[in-house]
Design a protein around this nucleic acid. Structure first.
Lengths: 345, 345
DNA sequence: ACAGGAAATGCAATCGATTGCTTAAAAATA
DNA sequence: TATTTTTAAGCAATCGATTGCATTTCCTGT
């Protein structure tokens, strides 16, 4: 791990008795350089194993073809896919991505953002952490002249570009599907209500009940059940109620739904016969559980692509919209066996 | 998306009638600055919403507390967990991570590396792509004075730090477990043989057969079956043989194993009774299939931590080893129902 | 009150690449 | 051949922060 100093444009210039500016122009395909010298410079650069220093270049040029992405965790299918979608577009445009994980911690999120701001990225794309409270750090991004695009979990009150899911209507659709299948007492596993997405999903649930003249039963609504383990505990408690639910909508995640399923299996409760189960996110495992899980696909890769396109659209003066646009993507209810007791599949 | 120019140390200096160098010293907690002026500077920096420009700072200082990670895909559990492990350590040391995906393409891998080299990261951590052939781009990293650590999929012949799994012995253990369970005709789904890890897994398979006096049956060895779909196709072909296998070791991935399981279910072949199935990687879904899947846990988070620790150990003169160290981590065979026909679990 | 030394601050070069402006050389035109 | 135009290359400032060295300011003791 020693440092055999890297070649710079000065080294190339010196070797060829040229001015560094000419080298720079040659390397940047400037038109004001003769073909012969350009070739010569390129060849020499190759020989000296020259690699550009983008820090110097960016510093001088005052901009940076780099976009920062901050997500709670990259090992969740949803986020990994959004990132894949973003990358698909940015890669083609020659932009680079810096991916950071907040690990669901606001403190960490702030650190990530600081790093990205210090790096002077051109844009920060973020889905906020679970314990998100204040949005000062997000405001600050804009004050630094850096574009900000929020997705999925967004701070509503903050005026930025946003790409979100229509959580409410999809949640409503899911619950109405359960009702259509004849489920009467539908329990709801809810996520942290400081996050917009979970508020919306709950709103959809409540709306569906109201719309169908069904009562809201407080004891069937369980807070913060968004891991497999928490989902399992919640389910145990629910099923031990004097009047247990006949369906559980794990609006937090498929992992929670998995916990529900595990407990049902353990207690010998048949799914979907005695208990309907619906998850959220369309994680890959939902296709292979027994029974397969009804869930909601968020079109994550499309979301990613949309986000990146939005950025480039605003970057380009000819396509710019100007005011902060909000794109709402319609998720899709994926009906599988865990909620089908009419056997219509 | 306009640019309200950012405050620099010059702005702070001007406002306070000080020299930029003093501002720099104050912001870096240098001891050669009086407490009063430091406080003053810090306060003013806050007021002006000053954010350091790390490009300028890194350029001047000639180093960069940033580490680049290149993996085929971040949405595979294994890689996501390794990254999580790396981050756990680097975060504490105040280093930042730039994560890049090669998407299993060598061309893309080279681009990623170029970006990282241009950014002058202090270290590149890589697991090579599936179509990896030449290692020139890896050699180049070292020539640029950047530390290089390979993990999992490594270029054997290249002398670098490496953190790998002992694939061979674990593969051997898996096959011996199958043999112990009474399976006689064990098929093998192999991965691209240009990657060391798949060569090693195959070696373990062959060794196990040899050791137990069992013949190597070429028709039971299937090339490049490493997705769910390819695994399914391979399985169909295998099971239609006049003399089909009674076990399939999907050494490529749990996804392939999933394909195997799907076909077995479809064909009404009982698992583990008529067919034993073993996967590789301990993806989270392996616990929840029916039957649960025997697989191999690679201790991915530990790998990540080990990698990062290795880097910092070498960075520190007092703990430096000097020559390129290779750490081999022992994976763990996780025995579940898909291979247990003796019912001993 | 003053020399001597420590502490705080200023000055200016530097990191590597870019770019507006100027100059030199080559080519085109008269 | 002389003059204009075009093309190519050089010069020097710049991006923002850091740092060795020089200078000034402030104490301290006598």
């Amino acid at each position: 791990m020693k440092q055999p100093k890297r070649a710079t444009i000065y080294d190339i210039a010196k070797k060829l008795n040229l001015n560094p500016s000419s080298v720079s122009r040659a390397l940047n395909n400037s038109s004001t350089i003769s073909i012969t010298t350009r070739e010569l410079i390129l060849k020499t650069a190759e020989e000296l194993n020259y690699k550009a220093n983008s820090m110097a270049s960016n510093l001088r040029k005052g901009h940076n073809r780099t976009i920062g992405v901050v997500v709670p965790r990259i090992n969740q299918n949803f986020f990994a896919n959004v990132i894949a979608g973003i990358e698909e577009v940015t890669y083609q445009k020659g932009y680079n991505l810096i991916i950071c994980q907040s690990n669901e911690s606001a403190a960490r999120e702030i650190k990530c953002i600081n790093t990205l701001v210090n790096q002077d990225v051109s844009c920060i794309i973020i889905s906020v952490s679970a314990d998100f409270e204040a949005d000062d750090h997000l405001r600050n991004i804009k004050e630094q002249g850096i574009s900000l695009i929020q997705f999925d979990r967004v701070a509503d009150e903050l005026d930025t570009f946003k790409v979100t899911n229509d959580n409410e209507s999809t949640s409503l659709a899911a619950v109405e599907h359960l009702i259509a299948e004849g489920y009467q007492r539908i329990a709801f596993l809810e996520g942290p209500q400081n996050l917009n997405i979970f508020r919306q999903r709950k709103a959809g649930y409540l709306k569906a009940l109201r719309k169908n003249g069904m009562p809201v039963i407080p004891e069937l609504i369980v807070e913060n059940a968004w891991t497999k383990e928490l989902g399992a505990v919640a389910t145990k408690n629910l099923l031990e109620l004097p009047n247990p639910p006949d369906a559980i909508f794990a609006s937090t995640s498929d992992f929670a739904a998995l916990g529900v399923l595990a407990v049902a299996n353990e207690m010998n409760i048949s799914v979907p016969g005695q208990l309907g189960i619906c998850g959220y996110s369309n994680e890959s495992f939902t296709e292979i559980t027994t029974p397969t899980l009804t869930t909601i696909d968020q079109h994550s890769t499309l979301m990613g692509k949309t986000i990146a396109q939005l950025y480039f659209q605003e970057l380009d003066v000819t396509t710019r919209v100007g005011k902060h646009k909000v794109v709402n993507i319609q998720p899709e209810l994926i009906i599988r066996k865990s909620t089908l007791r009419t056997g219509s599949l």
